[in-house]
Design a binder for these strands. Sequence first.
RNA 1: CGGGUUGUGGCGCAGGUUGGUAGCGCGCCUCGUUCGGGACGAGGAGGUCGGGAGUUCAAAUCUCCCCAACCCGACCA
Length: 568
Amino acid sequence: MRWSKLFTPTLRDAPNDAVAPSHQLLVRGGFIRQLHAGHYSMLPLGWRVHQKVANIVRQEIEAIGGQEFLLPTMHPAELWKKSGRWDTMGEIMFRLEDRKGADNALGITHEEIFATVAAELSSYKQLPQIWYHIQTKFRDEARPKSGLLRVREFHMKDSYSFDVDDAGLDVSFDLHDTAYRRIFERLGIPAFAVQASSGAMGGNDSVEFMTPSDAGEDDVIRCPNCDYSANIEKATARLDIIDDESGPSQPERFDTPGVRTIKALEEFDGGAPADRQLKTMVMVLDGRITLAVVRGDHQLNTQKLVDATGAIEIRPAEADETLAALGAQPGSLGAVGVADHPVIVDEALQGRTNMTTGANIDDVHYRGVSVDRDLVVAQWADLREVEAGEPCIRCGAALGVVRCIEVGHIFKLGREYAEVFGATVSTPDGGEEPIVMGSYGIGIGRNMAAVVEAHHDDKGIVWPVSVTPFEAVITLMRTDEETMAAGDKLYGELKAAGVDVLLDDRDARAGVKFADAELIGIPYRLTVGPRGLRDGKVEFTTRSTGETTDVVIQAAAASVWEAVTAAR
RNA sequence: CGGGUUGUGGCGCAGGUUGGUAGCGCGCCUCGUUCGGGACGAGGAGGUCGGGAGUUCAAAUCUCCCCAACCCGACCA
């Protein structure tokens, strides 16, 4: 490709609304342009990278036996109603009516559709199967952000495994686990696996692949000592056992004028330290008032509450709902004796006695509360959010929190979809069993952005050779006949050698060309100018190190080829 | 969906409180001089000031409504 013909509108300044480095650099480098919130146009350079990322994913999924499909992205509502997700998916799904008035959905994922196709599987002899496609997904995200990191329209590689039994699923799952590790390795993304909540997608055994980045949206708990790591929505930690005094035989009311917070109650004369208090969070789960109780110094993690209850919609109660339900304002709330709303209690409170909590009367609290005795516990669950510094559940070392981008997610679906969509196979003993499925996703554009997050400097992007839009750029210092001829010759040699090469034949100043080449992140550069040509030499520069050496022109193409093939 | 911010040529911004008919830098076009790290000079093109309504002789500027984008939270590859 000749740069003079290439459409890559580079910008000296990043648009003001771009904050994440990958967002700024992809826009500045002319890789992408925003159409509207969460929808980006891939410009030629961006599309080249996108395709290289997709191809790496494709190769690794093929390597574990995956077969590529292409399923539609617009689906009849019927399929989603069948699985129940027409209702449970809520607002994340784009829905539209066709001219006949029939409901349609734009696919947020493809379990329903692959399961429908899988209904044609008939015998255990055909299993296992791994099916995948790389297809557009639409998600009406509440908040698209950070360029390609969180969008409403994106390409995802989603694969689905089909096995006769759980043991088979384990194998398919592990195959994906290793394939994913290879993918991130090849993309140059430093990713690691964490235990995760499977959220709205259903299923159990859920593993996310994370890469540390300030631009990310997930907090991950990591142990510095052992290999424990988990999404904060799932993470647990060891807790010191607290010895309570047994306390009175029943809770005692006491007046607490003006006390509205845990902290205020700690300082109040006759109050209690936060770890001897109960914190009562009033939540609305699918329209139903529910109390979530955690220790005073603990934080409720709402995803844990969702996982524990299977709720679809969850929100904190409004002040008036709280008043109507409990008869008091926040600050004096408690769960003692509450029987007409479900009370879900964090496991850390099991067996605790002599605790202090709100009495559901403004400015009044209880002390001497025994959790088991005084609360009508509908459910015990792990609700509390782990904090940095707490002891690792496995080894006791102080846990750390890292902000991460989720670059991949694999999880075991089980038999649910197969049952709903009639994907069953006959078994060796003549019976018939639903297929066991797994589901595995990687967002292509997101990974492209994640690569940039991991590989950039103050001059621009530093693409790994594996996904770079061009592997080498030949920068012509002048456009006179002699320089042009030398550049053309190198260009021809590199093309013939199978190197993706860009010839910067623009009539521009050296500084502009250098800056552009660095901005768009081409790994290797040959600089051709009259100065070197006099001695029959060109310069060879490596983007990542900035290292420059003179090479004789006859050997230049070979040097690039060697560097590129070594890094591919 | 809650909280915050911002909408003025392609990008970055000024102007707005004190209404008077739009300006700067970069980029773009032409010519010339330059030419190894974002050149200089001269000339030029490009904007319904997010949209609508209102106030006014007059609105980028004041008022109301709407829309969009971005950032922080709740949600996901």
